[in-house]
Design a binder for these strands. Structure first.
Lengths: 338, 338
DNA sequence: GTGAAAGCGCTAACAC
DNA sequence: GTGTTAGCGCTTTCAC
């Protein structure tokens, strides 16, 4: 049997112990207004010795301000979002704000529910991944009355403002790079996730880039579920079995790209001579593969930082509402040099 | 200029729109008490069309109950914690509770601050990694008056209860396995993190296991910062340069183990003949390496689930306060068969 | 089945 | 520099 919950301490208890008014205690604990050093000491000592922890539920209600920033991302088990969160935390660290994370699992209905939920805490700002949301979600975002920053993507309309990269352009530029290196029989490998709009836009940009040069996308292969090395291997084997004459594989993320790379090397395929490879993300953790996989760095940390700066009021809402960062192409050594 | 924040809607607004008392609206929105179907419909319609989002700050204060579970973990950029969180979420999904995550960065001072912070929201329960906390943190945990589950580790005393595995035993069993396979010149590679108590305990258990058989640990190599494939390569090269005659390398996690494995294969080292390798965690994402790295699965998802079940009241607090799960040894093919 | 009154634990605003 | 009063937006409790 757990011992009965002892009534939690309140300001009143500290007030009694310190022999000053609740108001004074409140001021000391929040470091607000003028309080004499002596009183301050008394209060702090009393609060500490009692083990008082302020009740923010009450505080938030009274002050009508809650120092939370709601952050909504599709997934945690996706090497990219921890980086974004890192950028956000780093930038909020010297402010009173703190991030609260909600995971939407690439499901619009779930996003709507999580948003409703987060809004019920009346956060001071909102950061969420992507520009695509349900009607209801967009309505909630507009009505929130606090800064809303949509991150990762700039191809579309934001509710309030956006910080990200153009995935369409990433795809198009990768197409140009690949064509320029002389590859012509090109395949694409990615997740089958209609709701992963950024992956979709990269593919669209990629195909557009290819077809501008009159090159069709020769094959595509999709998978379900999380990314892993094995998935990359299986996909690669599958696509090359179907179309053995492909000379380039563009993966929608580095993890499956890495799996593909390992598989190809084991098969003795000449990389990048006979077959070129590229991924997406620029995941730090995966540096150290037998070859450096060509990829595009998605500026994840910077995106988090810039978004947080806006919400924290360190930076103004950008003109036009959009900050488009420039992704960095990392050539690696899985694309032929020209 | 952002438009001025419109006063957020309150129950009063919905009440006015629906033509019933605030109390009735509240009952409908919380699905409590008897409300006639007609009234219910009226209220729901009004709430929806206004775009009303309940204010949980006020609700929490009034009801003295907040359906949050505080979850405190050392890091997100560590393939293991997303799994734990997944287990927790899965188990809380059919309850009114939801997890709120705080990241402590393996820093006791930071853990204390995050804890203070989370307690100020008066959560309905607490799940936190590890059994080692500052005096102040332990005091707060004891005084919290809600279920507290310490996870990942069972080697030590819990404040309330614990769900985890014995890292000491993991280390000892790996030692036995390695010795049994005939390896004798054994090195250890891990992070230099005095506050990663679980890694420390694995090493202690490992050394104890070796020395029981009269085998000393022949070398150890530590690194700073996050784990990655490159780190694993560098460490491996370093330790083998120092002690070329080592015949086994035990890594404190799979990521650096994978880096080491790749490096060794490139050097043409016979794995597992001339040199055996093992990691720790059983990270799904890394299956698909050229060899399956021997490792121990840490039961991360189950740990999350069991902890959540206790907090949610689905399971009682365990007898003796501890649930020790059995980690699974995954032999892979980087240890010689006996 | 519905409503009215009181109050949750704080802080804003103002008084002294 | 410190205290008093009112009230944040809900839910509890009890009356009807």
């Amino acid at each position: 049997m757990r011992t009965a919950r002892p009534r939690a301490l309140t300001l009143r208890d500290v007030s009694a112990a310190a022999g000053v008014s609740e108001m004074t205690v409140s001021r000391v604990l929040r470091d607000r207004g003028d309080v004499s050093a002596a009183t301050r000491e008394k209060v702090l000592t009393a609060a500490r010795s009692l083990g008082y922890v302020p009740n923010r539920i009450a505080g938030g209600l009274a002050s009508q301000r809650v120092n939370l920033v709601a952050v909504m991302i599709p997934s945690l088990s996706n090497l990219v979002f921890p980086d974004v969160l890192g950028g956000i935390s780093a930038e909020l660290d010297d402010t009173p704000l703190q991030p609260v994370v909600g995971v939407t699992q690439y499901a619009p209905a779930r996003e709507e529910a999580v948003l409703y939920d987060m809004l019920s805490w009346r956060p001071a700002g909102l950061i969420l991944a992507g520009l695509e949301h349900s009607r209801a979600a967009r309505a909630m975002l507009r009505a929130a009355g606090v800064p809303v920053v949509e991150i990762m993507d700039t191809d579309g309309e934001s509710v309030d403002c956006a910080v990200g990269i153009s995935h369409r352009r990433v795809g198009a530029e990768m197409a140009a790079t690949i064509l320029n290196a002389g590859y012509r029989r090109i395949g694409f490998l990615g997740t089958h996730m209609p709701e992963d709009h950024r992956a979709r836009k990269r593919l669209e940009g990629f195909e557009a880039g290819l077809s501008e040069a009159g090159v069709p996308l020769a094959a595509r292969e999709f998978y379900q579920g999380g990314s892993s090395l094995v998935k990359g291997r299986e996909l690669t084997e599958r696509i090359l079995t179907r179309k053995p004459d492909l000379d380039f594989l563009y993966y929608s993320n580095d993890m499956i790209g890495a799996g593909g790379l390992l598989w190809c090397l084991e098969q003795g395929i000449d990389i990048p001579g006979r077959l070129g490879l590229a991924g997406f993300n620029g995941v730090e953790m995966l540096k150290g593969l037998p070859r450096r996989l060509a990829t595009t760095d998605a500026r994840r940390v910077d995106i988090g930082r810039r978004a947080a700066r806006i919400v924290a009021g360190k930076d103004p809402r950008p003109d036009g509402g959009v900050i488009e960062l420039v992704p960095t192409f990392l050539p690696g050594d899985t694309i032929r040099q020209v």
